[in-house]
């Protein structure tokens, strides 16, 4: 059990660190990176790599956005197996509907009760802030 958590920690962390390199070394915007990750997820599932990786790393691969892509691919595949060609269109959204709906609903709800807050410039560590 502990090893599962550690494996998830290591793999999830490694994916994030790899993406961090891309952010810092290229001019890719976060939106492009998210899109790339989802597409990679679909691809991983399509070539049959996702399931074995999930068996080993569990949430280490399903929590990063590649898991979202893989869910779409899995949903499409299962829907095709059940209802045929129609599943190509229904599978993707059905499989990810819970996450998307929850995120959108929370967004709507919080936009009603919340408001944007002012931002602080972060302090540099170890140095006393400018005295007032």
């Amino acid at each position: 059990m502990i090893t599962d958590i550690i494996l998830a920690f290591l793999f999830g962390g490694a994916v994030c660190a790899a993406v961090q390199i891309f952010i810092d070394k290229t001019m890719l915007t976060p939106a492009r990176i998210l899109v790339t990750l989802v597409t990679i997820g679909v691809l991983l599932y399509a070539v049959g790599l996702y399931e074995p990786l999930y068996e080993i790393f569990g949430c280490g691969i399903s929590v990063p956005l590649v898991g979202f892509g893989a869910s779409i691919a899995r949903g499409v595949r299962e829907a095709i197996d059940q209802v045929g060609a129609f599943g190509i269109l229904t599978g993707g959204l059905t499989a990810t509907s819970a996450g998307i709906t929850l995120a959108l609903l929370l967004g709507l709800a919080f936009s009603i009760i919340g408001h944007g807050k002012r931002r602080n410039i972060p302090k540099k560590r170890g140095i006393r802030p400018h005295s007032m």
């Binding site: 410039i121 972060p122 302090k123 540099k124 140095i127 006393r128 802030p129 400018h130």
Partner: peptide, 9 residues
């Protein structure tokens, strides 16, 4: 404008 030594601007 900002204190560059203490603020991470």
């Amino acid at each position: 404008l900002y204190d560059m030594s203490s603020k991470d601007v």
